[in-house]
Write a protein that binds this DNA or RNA. Structure first.
Lengths: 336, 336
DNA sequence: GTGAAAGCGCTAACAT
DNA sequence: ATGTTAGCGCTTTCAC
């Protein structure tokens, strides 16, 4: 066993209370005893036991983060923002890979509760009623990142509809008239429906009719992008540009196009969504609607911790188009 | 506040000891009281406090993971293996993003200690003496993943020298004679020197002389791959293949070659290392020497937990070449 | 089969 | 300025 505060007290000839005060920077001791105690502490290599401490203050200085897949580029950037901010504030973070599995999420929620985390950050998944009930029952502060809910829970995300509208406008402004969309999971009320809405509005602004057959669905992943691109082009020989609801799907589309010997952006332009590393690494580098993922992660812990006194409110983060090389302007007069 | 074991005991008209026994599946109560207590527990929605529990058992059922960058593809796959295994074993994991920063690592080590984690997994960084001293002082079990140390600490990794030897042999067998190498950080005794050794040995087997100018260094990241490829080709117009020490660097090389209009694999073949998602997503898909990253993550927690009784030994994991489309066979007789 | 009570390592009154 | 002591919520002897 390691040393305890008692050992330190004994060796320094003071009471545990005094040691505790010194450890916590509370008033109530002379400079001399402080020095003495500090010296004994380093001598013994004493480290306070955060578990015992947590039992009393009801604070563990640790946060729980629930995300669909740690190895997913998207979530891992958010996680890294969370991690950095938490570290600055002296908090630790427990990661819980929910694997899009509701049962597993519930198990995690319980574990986090038992381990008395000070708050929970929930990333990018659909927030079920079941979760809501569990969390309100345990009275834990929570913030949603890149998702939102039907409940009064603060979230932090970009305005998806507006972001896609801008992304599609970007294409429209460059002369594209037949634009396809590779959307996310069909029916997803957070990341699919509003985005399709943005797509529609952009077309509408230019007086272009919306056609159902021009939007196909994927699941945000690479493989689904390949399939979606194939399906989209099969039904729409005329598209000159595709808006993709994630960089990974755009990478998939890119891959399909490459295999079909269709050049990007010469024959078809592509714009992605997220601005993750995959957009940078793609060939050609992808123009994409960027979300400030890292900042969103950082803000989420700030929000969570401030929340403790007085509800903090949700916030929309700005999106920004990262221009790279996957979009070509086409000259309308020549139809080229 | 939530309910405590005392509340349950009172409401069920038994002692806390009995409740505790039931909670922990210990003998010493009748089936009847068990039912009664269990019922009260669900009624109240009681959840045990793992902090209080941890104070007694000196077990927190949580692990600490130290890694250089959560958003790095490589580490995040390992992390996801760790996460899954930990979850199966009812452990939680605290992630610590060390950002290749020694000070930060030391801070984390201390935090993990104070929070009484049951063990530590250290991924892919150089393991400094400083860390060793801190960890032995706190008597925490630890395992190294994808790295090793000068100390008697179990590690789990692939045999880098052998892996690169196989990768380069793969190229040699396909007729390549002038092979460049984009290595990792110069001087890195874990992930660079042994790999260069493997490269040398492969050439040697075929009686090809090793040339210093054919190996250039990067830092395992995408951008460094771009620069390295440029440098390598500048000094070696004749290479027909490049072995890269990470998939990200290979993607960088790919990107550079694309910009230079040098076709892969027609003009230059490429093989990567790791077999992460970026190898799959590359255009063309990268042939790469794969490490079983996810499995390594899983094994590391198994190893860590078994370790508690009796030292467990290090293990080498098998590497395996994932064949995709970035390598072309060249016919030597025609010199093509 | 069940309960009382002594801690685990610490903090926070309350004394002095 | 410093010490004594009562817990925090739980597990674990030791009685009965």
């Amino acid at each position: 066993m390691s040393y305890t505060i008692k050992d330190v007290a004994k060796k320094a000839n003071v009471s545990v209370a005094t040691v505790s005060r010194i450890l916590n920077n509370l008033p109530g001791y002379s400079e001399k005893t402080k020095e003495k105690v500090l010296q004994v502490i380093t001598e013994m290599g004493y480290q306070p036991n955060a578990i015992a401490r947590g039992l009393i203050n009801k604070k563990t200085k640790t946060l729980g983060v629930l995300l669909p897949a740690v190895s997913d580029t998207f979530a891992s950037v958010v996680l890294s923002g969370i991690e950095d901010m938490a570290h600055d504030l002296d908090y630790s973070v427990m990661v819980c890979n929910t694997a899009k599995d509701g049962i597993r999420t519930m198990k995690y929620l319980q574990a986090l509760r038992e381990k008395q985390v000070d708050g929970i950050i929930f990333i990018s998944e659909f927030f079920k009623e079941e979760y809501y009930n569990a969390i309100t029952a345990m009275k834990l502060p929570i913030v949603l990142v890149s998702t939102k809910s039907a409940y009064d829970i603060p979230f932090i995300k970009v305005d998806d509809e507006k972001a896609v509208l801008d992304g599609v406008m970007y294409l429209l402004e460059r002369g594209h008239r037949s634009i396809g969309m590779i959307a996310g999971t069909k029916g997803d009320t957070i990341a699919t429906i509003p985005r399709i809405e943005g797509y529609k509005k952009a077309l509408n602004k230019q007086g272009i009719a919306f056609e159902t057959k021009k939007v196909v669905y994927g699941d945000f992943g690479f493989e689904s992008g390949i399939e979606a691109a194939e399906e989209l082009l099969y039904h729409n020989k005329d598209v000159t540009a595709i808006f993709c609801s994630s960089d990974e799907m755009a990478a998939g589309a890119l891959s399909y196009l490459y295999r079909m010997s269709i050049r990007v952006p010469d024959e078809i332009s592509l714009v992605g969504y997220d601005n993750t590393k995959v957009a940078e690494m793609a060939i050609p580098p992808l123009t994409t609607v960027g979300q400030p993922l890292y900042e969103m992660g950082k803000n989420s812990v700030r929000m969570l911790l401030e929340r403790e006194d007085g509800q903090s409110k949700s916030m929309f983060m700005p999106h920004k188009i990262a221009e790279r090389e996957s979009v070509k302007s086409i000259d309308q007069s020549t139809g080229e």
